[in-house]
Simulated assay, not measured.
Amino acid sequence: MFETDFGSGIAKELFLTLKDKKILFVTQENLLQKYREIIPAEFAVLCVDNMEEAYLAGLNAETPAVDEVVGFGGGMSVDAAKYFAWQRALPCTLVPTAISVDACYSYPIALRRNAVVCYEGEVIPKTICVDYDIIRSAPIRLNLSGVGDVLSCYTALFDWRLMSAAGKGPAVVDRLYNTAENILGELFGNTADIAGMTDKGIRMIMDAYAWVGIEGYNNRYCHFEEGSEHYLAYTVESVCGKHLLHGQLVSMCVYIMSKFQQEGRQNDVRRFVDAIGLSIKPADVGLSGDEVSAALKRANAFAVENALAYSVLNEKQITQAFIDEVLGELQ
């Protein structure tokens, strides 16, 4: 499951093996221009620019029949490729160009309906091709943000304990909980490899994504990786209507929600993001202080209205005093 090939220069080799098939090559315009020389002219290229379900459905209706789908890019390209593969019941190969998000290893598709995330469908890729050279050629901010969907275990595990104690969802499974804690330990203990995007650092993050994806598929929940930090991120997207770098946004939300869970927990998050060089200042994430404030004021209600899994957002209310304090820390 989630068969992954690692190496340098392997994306070009993969594309050459596929050029005699009818391939729908899903990417974004900037990536098409950057990597045009390794993309066979025979591929039917489709550039996407958002994940709204109605938009993708329209593209799908206009696109000719193919044998296979290839997703080449970050989370948007990968999830869009999964969508087309799902709609057409076709095999799908995914080639991430950055490790900014865990979409390759997430079997559902993260669509948007009126800017609100919704998970639909089920796609297990035929192959995931991780080309170290392509990953390292991405802007460092994209790659560093990839820690977000691993760092999120830090707050998600806390929320899972709350859920289990309240009897509001699956009880904590020690095997899953302990493995997620060990993954966090590896993350916190190898900041130099992550900051330098060494082969080891890249593989560490991708292996963590794979574990989350496999266990999420087998258990049909991801409470060990998704909790109040993701719910706050979804609230931010809904309130602000912006397309933000997912992993960096989630990392900022891990800081905020870990502080909300228990004062002092955010200190480990701060040390980690500072060590790898990932900024979680609202302005660097693409947000104003007022936008973060508006999202925090909305977060409790958003979680309830969207029937999100039980978390600290169900146990206590975010106050103006908390908002003022955490924004002061993030500036």
Rank of each mutant, 00 (worst) to 15 (best):
C253F: 05
G247K: 06
K259A: 12
N218G: 13
Q262W: 14
Y231A: 06
E229H: 03
T235H: 01
S258A: 10
L244F: 03
E237L: 10
C240V: 14
L245V: 09
N219M: 14
C240P: 14
Y217E: 13
M257Q: 09
Q261K: 10
V239I: 14
L244G: 04
I256R: 02
S238P: 04
V254G: 03
Y234L: 12
A233F: 07
Y255S: 00
L244I: 06
T235S: 05
H243Q: 14
Y217R: 15
G227D: 00
E263H: 08
Y231L: 12
G216A: 09
M257N: 04
N219C: 14
Y255H: 06
C222W: 00
C253G: 03
I256L: 05
Y234T: 05
K242I: 05
L244S: 02
F224M: 15
S228V: 08
S258F: 09
E229Y: 01
H223M: 12
T235G: 04
C253W: 01
Y231P: 14
L232H: 07
F224R: 12
V254Q: 02
L249M: 11
F224I: 15
R220N: 14
Y217V: 08
F260D: 00
G241V: 07
H230I: 02
V236E: 03
E229P: 03
I256Q: 00
G264D: 03
V254L: 03
F224S: 15
V239M: 10
H246Q: 13
G247Q: 05
E225M: 12
G216N: 06
L249S: 06
Y221M: 08
I256W: 00
N218W: 11
F260R: 06
N219G: 10
V250S: 04
Y234P: 06
Y231K: 10
H230C: 05
F260L: 08
Q262N: 15
H246D: 10
T235R: 01
Y255A: 01
G247R: 01
V236N: 02
Y221D: 11
A233Y: 07
N218V: 00
Y221Q: 13
S251K: 03
M252E: 00
Q261P: 01
F260N: 05
E237K: 09
S251T: 03
H223N: 14
Q248K: 15
L245I: 09
S228P: 07
V254S: 02
H230V: 04
E226M: 15
V236W: 03
V239G: 13
T235Q: 01
Y231G: 10
C253H: 07
K259R: 15
L232M: 11
F224Y: 15
Y234S: 09
E215L: 09
Y234N: 10
V250W: 07
H223C: 12
G216L: 04
G241N: 05
E225F: 03
E229T: 07
L249R: 06
G247M: 04
Y221T: 07
S251M: 01
K242S: 01
S258M: 09
E225H: 09
V239D: 11
E263W: 00
S251I: 05
G216P: 02
I256D: 05
S258V: 07
F224C: 15
C253L: 08
E237M: 09
R220W: 08
F224H: 15
E226V: 15
K259M: 09
C222H: 01
E226P: 04
Q248P: 10
F224L: 15
S238N: 13
G227I: 05
N218A: 11
E237S: 12
E226G: 12
N219W: 13
E215T: 14
Q261T: 08
L244M: 04
Y217C: 10
K242G: 00
H230Q: 01
